[in-house]
Each structure stands twice: as structure tokens, then as C-alpha cells.
Simulated assay, not measured.
Amino acid sequence: MRPPAFWDARPGHPAARLLAPLGALYGRHTAARMDRPGAAAPCPVLCIGNFTLGGAGKTPTALALATLLRDLGARPAFLTRGYGGRLAGPIRVDPTMQTVAETGDEPRLLARSAPTILSRDRPAGARLCVAEGADVIVMDDGLQNPSLAKTLSLAVVDAGAGLGNGRPFPAGPLRVPVSRQWRHVHGIVLIGDGPRGAVVAEAARARGLPVHRARLIPGADFAGRRVLAFAGIGRPDKFFSSLAEAGATLVGRRAFADHHPYAAADAAALTAEARRLGADLVTTEKDHVRLEAPFAARVAILPVTLAFADEAPLLAQLRSLLGRASG
């Protein structure tokens, strides 16, 4: 889906008020579900989630934290439900053996970095992670899923979006009323800058929770290149901003719904428009895995990595997760 504009408006927007009773019912139900105890995992579980629906930056955060865990001597594996894919698992993701239609896009990106287990049954997936050699699990999403107990949960917040209008779905973007979510997190990862993010950071600090500030770093140089950028992610504007930061001249921008399955008609339309504009086609890593050949070969990728402003407090939390002394 593409988030409705009123999710980003004031809480008193007419559409938000109209849907508020449904949001209250949904919020109570999902909050009660979130509070249920989960099954114990065979090793520590680091959950990377977010308070809202849509993209906040969970996947680059999970990748960055897996790198830090390896630096600490751990053997992480990713656990994901494979949103958008038809496989239920538990199964180890192998991009050479499975299609994006089977796994979804995010697991294929994660699998490039560490063993990745796709499983809608989280406890079964956790057992397979350990069987594959992991001694710590990085769970991509699942903060609101109670089936597996988490050792450490970090909520990722896009500073530009914050919590939107602060209402639960469908009146707003919250998965659960935020007042009921704070008790389930041990800190937040705040990506970028913005007044909405500052409000969330202040609320976290008031509860004694650490705020790990971070930013997305473009991994390629597009200086001097005219580009037609397209993306089907939670917040395409973040990608467009990163591309501009990488020096590109954006002569066209096309935003698709999150996890959009690109069809032949999309490829033909984008190719024709890029030719008319005299521009190169560029997209995200996550979008690129959903492109079919030969179109994929004609599209450049802007990779991004997450960099933390101060790794020391985060490393302290990760050492505690692993049960290891600092030093």
C-alpha cells in the first residue's frame, strides 16, 4: 500500500477523526497481542522493529548491527518473515535457488551479509538459525509479534517522519498506540534529522532509553549524472534525497507503492521516459532485486549504509546482549 497523506498530517484531520474508532479497536487488539509472553529462543535475540507501518530503515539498521556483532566475535543470523514472498519456511534463503516472489525482497539483501532464515513461525525460525551456526539472532521486524521472546529490542525511527499523526492504523501509521510500545523497547535508532524525530528522542530519553543517532551514507558517486530515479519503498523521498546527496541531477522521480512488483509495462514506461529525458535509470538495492532481466541490467543502483554518530553506547548494549564484558 501507499500511505495516505493524512497519516502525515495533524491528528485532527477529518479522515483521521473518522477512522479513530477503528484505530482504537485495532490498537487495543494489537496491544493486547503484543503483551503476550513469547517462546524462549535458543540464543540471544536482537529485534529490529519500528513503531509504525511503512519504511523506517530497519533493513540497513539490521545489516549495520550484524556487522557490529561480527566485530564483537559473534556469529549472527537474520530471521525474517519474508514480507511479500509466498514461502512460509522455515528455510535458509538462497537467492540462487529461490525467486523474489518466493522470498520477498528484503531477505535477499540480508542473505548477502549473513545466513538468513525465512520463517513465519518465529520460534521454528530461531531454531533453524542456531542449527545453521548462529549464536545470536538479528530479527528483522517483529517488534509487535509476541511469538518469540526478545533479549534486546531497538525501534528504528525515521526522524523526518517521526510517528506521523500519532494515531493507530487505519487512522494513522502506528501499529500499536505508542504508549503501549515503549515498555517493549530498550532503545531507539534515530535515522536522520527532523523535528518529529526530536520529539520521539525526547520521549525515549524521558524513559531512560538510549537514542542511537545514525544517518544513511550513499555508497556510490553520481556526480554529473542526469538520472530518472524510481523506488517502491516505504519512503521514496529518502532515496531521492540520498541520490541528490550523491551528486545526481534528478530530472525525474517515480514513486511506487512499497514492495511494488515491477511488471513489463513498468519497465517499458521507465525505459521510454529515461530515453526521452536523456537520463540514466537508478533505483534502490531493494527495488533492484525485484527487476527482471534484461531491464535490471539497464538500471543503476544506489547502495546505502547506516553509520552511527557514536557507536560506544550501542556496543555496550550489544555486549550486554551477548553476555560479554566490555573491553
Rank of each mutant, 00 (worst) to 15 (best):
S147C: 04
L148A: 06
A149Q: 14
A149I: 02
K150N: 10
K150G: 01
T151I: 06
L152S: 14
L152K: 14
L152R: 15
S153G: 09
S153E: 15
S153F: 11
S153N: 14
A155M: 09
A155Y: 03
A155E: 06
A155G: 12
V156K: 11
V156T: 13
V156G: 12
V157T: 08
V157Y: 00
D158P: 04
D158Y: 00
D158K: 05
A159P: 02
G160I: 07
G160E: 15
A161W: 01
A161M: 12
G162Y: 05
G162D: 06
L163C: 05
L163N: 00
L163F: 02
L163T: 01
G164L: 01
G164D: 00
N165C: 08
N165R: 07
N165T: 07
N165E: 07
N165G: 07
G166T: 07
G166A: 08
R167Q: 15
R167K: 14
P168H: 07
F169T: 05
F169G: 02
F169W: 14
F169N: 02
F169K: 04
P170Q: 11
P170F: 07
P170T: 09
P170I: 10
P170L: 08
A171E: 05
A171Y: 04
A171G: 08
A171W: 03
G172Q: 04
G172D: 03
G172M: 01
G172H: 00
G172V: 00
G172Y: 01
P173F: 00
P173R: 00
L174P: 00
R175F: 03
R175K: 13
R175H: 11
V176D: 03
V176T: 10
V176L: 02
P177F: 07
P177G: 11
P177W: 02
P177Q: 10
V178F: 12
V178L: 04
V178M: 08
S179W: 06
R180M: 06
R180D: 14
R180P: 01
R180H: 14
R180W: 04
Q181D: 05
Q181I: 05
Q181P: 01
Q181K: 09
W182F: 13
W182C: 09
W182P: 03
W182R: 13
R183K: 15
R183E: 13
R183Y: 03
H184Y: 04
H184V: 00
H184C: 06
V185A: 10
V185Q: 09
V185D: 04
V185T: 14
H186A: 15
H186K: 13
G187R: 13
G187A: 13
G187M: 09
G187E: 10
G187H: 12
I188C: 06
I188P: 00
I188Y: 03
V189W: 01
V189Y: 05
V189S: 12
I191M: 11
I191Y: 09
G192I: 08
G192D: 10
G192K: 13
D193C: 06
D193Y: 03
D193N: 11
D193L: 09
G194V: 08
G194S: 10
P195I: 05
R196F: 03
G197Y: 10
G197T: 09
G197F: 08
A198G: 13
A198D: 15
A198K: 12
V199A: 15
V199I: 14
V199P: 00
V199H: 10
V200H: 01
V200C: 04
V200F: 05
V200R: 02
V200N: 01
A201I: 05
A201K: 10
A201Y: 09
A201V: 11
A201M: 11
E202Q: 15
E202C: 09
E202N: 09
